[in-house]
Design a protein around this nucleic acid. Structure first.
Lengths: 239, 239, 239, 239
DNA sequence: GATGAATGAGATTTCATTCAT
DNA sequence: CATGAATGAAATCTCATTCAT
C-alpha cells in the first residue's frame, strides 16, 4: 500500500527524470539512473513511459505547459503590447535562471534531434514563443514596435538573448542578478525594437536614444489627447 | 599508395568528424562512423586523434581559429567601436548561417560537458567574444555605447540573438536572408546598445543632439496638442 | 526458468571466474569468456559484478575469508605458539596445493597492480598472515621463538616457502606429497625459528647456541683432523 | 650515422623493455611504449625482436645469464657447501632488492604462461637454482646439510623466502635492510637445513633435545679428536 | 504494477603485428 | 634499417528495452 502522501509513480518518474536530465543531461542519464532514483527497477519505468525519448518529451512538456498557461494569464492582464513583451521577458529570464533544468534541457538537449522541428517539444516551444510574437505583432499594429523587424527575428533576438544570459550565469561560476539583468535586457531590447528606433537606425545614431524618449512621450500624447485634427501619418513606415 | 590529390589522413578525419558531428550530433556520431567515412578501420583513427572528445575539440578549434583571426583583422581595419561591432555581428551571422556545423556544434554539443567552462572550446569562445566585448568597452569609453549595460550582458544579447537566428534558419526549414537579417539585427542591437538609448545617459552627450531632439519633439507636439492649451501631463511614464 | 538445482547467477559467475582466472590468468581471461562459461551474454555479467577487477577481488575474497575463519578457529584450539604455527603452515600448504587457483591468483595476478598495497586482497592477505605473526610474536614472548628475527621476516620466510613449494608442484608436472612436504617444511622452519637456534639466545636458551658452536667445531675437526680410525658412520641418516 | 657512444639498437630495445616491463609489468607495457622510449616507431622494433613474448624472454635472459655466471664464479671460490649456500642467498637477496625489475618480472610476469615449464626463462631459472641445489646436495654428502630434506624442497624454501622478503620490501613502502635481513634469513635457513637440525625436529626442543645434541657432538668428538691431546683451539669460528 | 534477469547491439579504446615505401 | 600507416581482432563496459514470473 502506498503512502498516502506519496505521489503516483508516474509523477515520481517524471520528477526523477527532470532532475537527472537537468543535472547530467539526457544522454548521460540512463533509464537505470531514473529507476534507481525512484526506487524501482528499470523494467518498472516502462509501465509508465513508453521510451526514454518520450520521457524527455513529457518532462519538457511538464515545464512548458504551466509556463505557457501562466504566461497567457499574465499577459492577459496587461494592455499594451510593450508591457506584454516586458512581462514575457521578465518571466522567461526568471524561469531560466531559477531552473537550471529548463535552461539546459531546452537549450542543449531537446534540440539535438533530427526531427526536432516536428517534435512535441518544438510544438510547445512554438506555442510558447507565439505569445511573444502575437504581442509583438500587436505592437507593430499599434505602432509601438518597428514594422521593419519580422516577428520571428524579434523572437529570436529576445529568446536568444535570454538563453545566453541564463546560460552564462549557469556556467559562468557567477550568480546572475536577475532583476538588474532583466532591466538591462528589457531596456536594450524594447528600445531596439520600438518603432521610434528605426528611423534613426542609419543616421547619426548618437541622438537616437534621446529622440526615442521624446518620441515615446509624444506617442503617449498622441494616444491620449484627442487630436486636433485627424492624424493621417502612419508612423514607422521608414525604410 | 595514396592518391596525390588526397588530403592527409588527419585532415580527412577532421573533415569527416566535422560533417558527421554537424549532421548527427556528437553523441550520435560514433568513431566507427567517422572511420567508415574516411575509409579506414576504427583503430586507424586513433593514430591521428587521441580521443573522441579531443576530436571534437579539434573540430571546434578548426572553426574558431580562422574565425578569430579573420575577425581580428577585420575589426583592425575599421575605427569606430560601433563599426567594429557591426563587422563582428555581420561576420558571425554569416558564419553561422553558412555552416550548420559551426552552429549546431557550438550551440548544442560543445556545451554539454560539465567541465565546459575549463575546456579548450570554451577558451576559444571566450577569446572570440572578447573581440566583441573589447569593442563594446571602447564604445562605452567613447560614449557611443551605453555605460549601464555590462559588456557581458551585451555579449550575451548579441551572440544569443545570432545563435537563435541561425538556429531558426537551420531547423525552420526556411533559408535565412542573411543580409536582411543582419541589417535587422544590427539595427535593433546597436540602437538598443547605443548611449543615446540609456535612460541614464551621461551628460557629455553632445549638445547638438539635444537641439535636434527638441526640434523634433516640438514639431510633433505642434502637430498633436491643441494650439492654446497647457499640457499638464507628466511625461516619462513609459512603462 | 532456472533449474532448481542451479546456483544463483552470482555464484555461477564467481565460480566461472575462479576457474578461468586460475587456468588462464587474470589478463588472459576475458569477461566474454566468463559470460560464455556461465551461459549468458557479456552484459549480463555486469548486473552482478561491477567490474572485472572487482570480480577478481571477490574471487580472492571468497577464498581468503573461509581460510581466515577456519584458520582462526583452528589455532584457537591449540595452546603453544609453536603448534599454532605448525597448524597454520600445514593448512596453508594444503590449501595451496589443493587449489591451483588460490596459488596462482594470489602469487601472480593479484600482486600485479600498482595499488596492490591498498587493495582489498592485500588487506585480506594481511589479515591472514597476521594470524601467523601474532602466533610468532607470542612464541617470542614465551621464549619458544627467536627474538632476533622480526615477525615480518618470519612471515615472509614461511609464506614464501609455502608459495614456492606449491608453485613448484603446480608447474613441475609433479604431484606434491603434501604430508611429507609439510613435515619437511615444518621441520626446517620451526627449527630455524626456534629460540634454541638463535645465536644470541637469551637466558636458558643460550644452551642451544652453545651446542651450535660445539657442532661447528666438531665439523671443522672432522674436516681437518685425520680420523683416528676409519669413520664408517654416515651422519644424518636419522629419520 | 649513429653516435659512437650509442648502443646498438638491439641493446637499446632490450634496455627499454627491461625498464618498462619492470615499472609497469609485461601486459601493461605496449610495443609502442617500448618503441617510443627508444625513439623509433613501432615497426622498427620488429626488425630486432620477433615478438613481444620473445622480447620478454630476452630481457629475462639478459638478467639471468650474468647472474648465473657471476654466481658460478663466486661459489667456485669458496669451499664448504654451507658457505656456497650463504653466498648464493646473499647475492640473490641483494639482486632482488636492488632491482625491482628482476623481482617483479620473475615473480609475477614470467610465470603467467601456460607453457612456462618449457619456456626459456624457466630453463634459465632451473640452471640458476641448480647452483643452489648442487651446493645443497654436496652439503648433504658432507653431512653439513640434512639428508631428509629433498634439494627441491630446500630450493623452494630458500628462493621462496627470498622472493617474499624482496617483494615485501617492494610493496611494503619500507626499505629493506639487506644486510640485516640477509643475516636473519641465512641464520634461519642454514640452521633449519643443517644436519644437526634433523634429529631434534620432532622431539621437544627444550632441555631433552639439547642433551641429545650434546650427546651427538660428544660422540663425534670422540670419533675425531686424537685421544689424549688437549684441544686448545678457540671454538666459535664458525662462519 | 513490479521484479530481476537477460539481451544484443554498440561504444570507445588498445595493441601486436604487417607492409609498402 | 626505418617510417608511418593500417589492420583486425578483441576487450571492457553501457544501455534501452523486453519478458517470464
Amino acid at each position: 500500500m502506498r503512502d498516502a502522501h506519496a505521489q503516483p509513480r508516474k509523477v515520481q518518474i517524471l520528477e526523477a527524470a527532470r532532475t537527472l536530465f537537468a543535472e547530467d543531461g539526457y544522454d548521460a542519464t540512463s533509464m537505470a539512473d531514473i529507476a534507481r532514483r525512484v526506487g524501482v527497477v528499470e523494467g518498472a519505468v516502462y509501465r509508465h513511459v513508453p521510451s526514454k525519448r518520450d520521457l524527455l518529451h513529457q518532462v519538457i512538456a511538464s515545464f512548458y505547459e504551466p509556463l505557457i498557461d501562466s504566461a497567457t494569464d499574465a499577459i492577459a492582464s496587461v494592455d499594451s503590447p510593450r508591457e506584454k513583451v516586458a512581462v514575457l521577458i521578465r518571466r522567461q529570464l526568471q524561469a531560466f535562471t531559477e531552473d537550471r533544468l529548463l535552461c539546459r534541457l531546452l537549450i542543449s538537449e531537446a534540440r539535438s534531434f533530427d526531427d526536432y522541428y516536428d517534435s512535441e517539444p518544438a510544438a510547445l516551444s512554438r506555442r510558447y514563443t507565439a505569445l511573444f510574437m502575437d504581442a509583438f505583432a500587436d505592437g507593430v499594429r499599434t505602432g509601438e514596435f518597428r514594422s521593419d523587424i519580422p516577428a520571428t527575428v524579434a523572437r529570436d533576438i529576445v529568446y536568444g538573448s535570454i538563453e545566453h544570459l541564463a546560460w552564462s550565469s549557469l556556467t559562468g561560476h557567477a550568480t546572475l542578478d536577475v532583476d538588474a539583468t532583466t532591466d538591462q535586457l528589457l531596456s536594450v531590447i524594447t528600445i531596439g525594437l520600438s518603432s521610434t528606433a528605426s528611423p534613426a537606425a542609419d543616421g547619426d545614431v548618437s541622438l537616437g536614444g534621446l529622440v526615442d524618449r521624446l518620441e515615446a512621450v509624444t506617442e503617449r500624447l498622441e494616444a491620449t489627447a484627442p487630436p486636433h485634427e485627424s492624424t493621417t501619418r502612419t508612423p514607422n513606415e521608414a525604410r
